[in-house]
């Protein structure tokens, strides 16, 4: 294992975040905090509690999950797309680095950034709304699994994308709608029966539900199903990345 290469990629990616701290850290923290203020403080005070949890506190896990999905995908996709865009990807491909090492470097950095952001947002949220974490181990597990899975998705997206516009398509047109319709702001039990069933086809439901369960013990679907769905998504992403490197798709052909 070329550990120095992994560290070199990881370090450069983390240094990029440090250089762009306003965009990489402050911007997502502020925009997510605005949700707490508006939905938690202003509107949330007029919404009754959901199964004993105030609305402001109820939406915190979903908002953290929304941020995790977006940031993991965007950070990892940009991380691998930018070397393709400026041409420096030749260096990665000509170095004595295995595909696994490249993925660990890029995905590890993107996931690290997302986890740090998740912790900052959790701390920020606790200033506005009362939060409790009933299952901290499961919370960390979901935090890490989700960050890694969607960083892998972002990595795939970055290799697939032929332009900056394509880089934005998945986060904006797929992940954001799925997150908003995946129970971030409501329990799916509030929906009519048909839509409760239809929503179960949205993978984000499992992530939000499992993550919320780790906070308040409330879940729309069984936590085991949530973990299984997350693990399945992770496995699919790993398989796609393995196929990309095996075939050289949009990298070596």
């Amino acid at each position: 294992m070329n550990l120095r290469a992994i560290w070199a990629i990881y370090y450069v990616e983390m240094a990029r975040t440090a250089r762009t701290v306003m965009q990489s850290v402050l911007s997502p923290v502020i925009s997510t905090s605005l949700y707490f203020v508006v939905f938690g403080g202003a509107i949330g005070s007029r919404i009754p509690e959901i199964e004993g949890v105030s609305y402001g506190a109820f939406i915190v896990p979903g908002l953290i999950m929304l941020m995790l999905l977006m940031q993991s995908t965007m950070n990892a996709s940009f991380g691998i797309y930018f070397p393709k865009f400026v041409g420096t990807v030749y260096e990665l491909l000509s170095a004595p680095v295995s595909y696994v090492e490249i993925v660990i470097g890029f995905v590890g950095a993107a996931a690290t950034k997302s986890i740090i952001l998740g912790i900052i947002i959790l701390a920020t949220a606790s200033l506005f709304v009362p939060i409790r974490i009933e299952h901290p181990f499961v919370m960390v597990l979901f935090l890490v699994l989700t960050s890694v899975s969607f960083s892998l998705l972002g990595f795939i997206l970055g290799i697939w994308a032929k332009g900056f516009e394509q880089l934005q398509i998945v986060p904006m047109l797929i992940i954001t709608p799925l997150a908003f319709l995946g129970g971030t702001f409501y329990s799916i039990n509030m929906l009519p029966p048909f839509w409760q069933t239809a929503t179960l086809f949205n993978p984000v439901v499992y992530l939000v539900s499992g993550f919320r369960w780790s906070f308040y013990g409330l879940a729309d679907v069984a936590v085991g199903a949530s973990l299984a769905a997350t693990a399945l998504f992770l496995a699919i992403c790993v398989a796609i990345v393995a196929w990309i490197f095996k075939t050289g798709y949009r990298l070596k052909n």
Partner: peptide, 21 residues
């Protein structure tokens, strides 16, 4: 001419050395 525009000379050559283990 393929370079990462926002890196310094020292950082970019250090990165290359690290990448090769």
């Amino acid at each position: 001419l393929a370079i990462t525009p926002f890196e310094s000379v020292w950082n970019t050559v250090s990165f290359s050395r690290g990448l090769f283990g």
